[in-house]
């Protein structure tokens, strides 16, 4: 089975009362294992829509999306949920942590639905992940007690909780200062060296320095590839 994400003739169309918006307009994209992909473009180019579709957070209007060889458009919701749990880790610009849970509890959250990680292992695994991101002394802190960079690292640790193959990040450095930007991107790059596939959507040019492949989007289409 091929370990890749493959999007063919992807359309995402929103119909408003007076107009039709093509957020994705006949997009073809192949994401191969172990690489760092950057999808760049100005605001409204469709890059966030693209990554949400790749991560099964949203669905295509038409076209086909293959994840590890399995076509997802007619998949049952439970199967998509399983793929999200097992294969994909998502990182958001706004971190999207549960503000009422401590850092370690946020990281443990995806593990409860993973039968392969038993009760006692969850906490240790979460600790190990946070330790690898230099957050050992912050594990019992709530998100509001963490800096932006620390919160994003917690979010990445959470995304890795179930050891997924793909990490999809939507503007992961959008709310960070330059120093933290670099820390987070370094972390994401390190993941590709460990065999994971990372897709980062960003308008920030600095991401290009980390990417193995770069796609530029505009008006819902991929205009160029580097």
């Amino acid at each position: 089975m091929s370990e890749e994400i493959n999007l063919k003739n992807g359309y995402k169309i929103y119909k408003k009362t007076s107009e039709t918006i093509k957020a994705l307009n006949n997009v073809d994209l192949k994401i191969e294992k172990g690489k760092f992909y950057a999808i760049m473009g100005h605001s409204g180019s469709g890059k966030s829509t693209l990554i949400q579709i790749l991560g099964l957070l949203d669905s295509l209007t038409s076209g086909k999306l293959y994840i590890d060889g399995k076509e997802t458009s007619n998949m049952k919701e439970n199967d998509k949920t399983y793929i999200r749990m097992k294969k994909i880790g998502f990182v958001f610009q706004s971190f999207y942590l549960n503000p009422k849970l401590k850092a370690i509890e946020n990281v443990m959250l995806p593990m409860y639905i993973n039968k392969e990680i038993k009760g006692r292992e969850r906490k240790q695994r979460a600790k190990d992940l946070l330790k690898s991101f230099n957050l050992s002394d912050r594990i019992n802190h709530y998100p509001k007690e963490l800096s932006g960079g620390e919160q994003q690292r917690v979010a990445i640790a959470r995304a890795l909780a179930n050891n997924p193959e793909y990490i999809l990040a939507d503007e992961p450095t959008g709310n960070l200062d330059i120093d933290n930007e670099k820390i987070v991107l370094d972390l994401l790059k390190k993941l590709t060296r460990e065999g994971k596939t990372v897709v980062v959507v960003s308008h920030n040019e600095i991401v290009k320095d980390y990417a193995d492949e770069i796609y530029y989007m505009s008006n819902g289409e991929i205009r160029s590839k580097i």
């Binding site: 957070l57 919701e77 439970n78 949920t81 399983y82 999200r84 749990m85 097992k86 998502f90 999207y96 549960n98 959250l109 995806p110 639905i113 993973n114 959470r158 909780a161 179930n162």
Partner: peptide
């Protein structure tokens, strides 16, 4: 919060 749970793989049933 429900959206977050769905993102990390929780089903509607969960």
């Amino acid at each position: 919060i429900y959206g977050l749970l769905k993102t990390v793989g929780y089903s509607k049933k969960n």
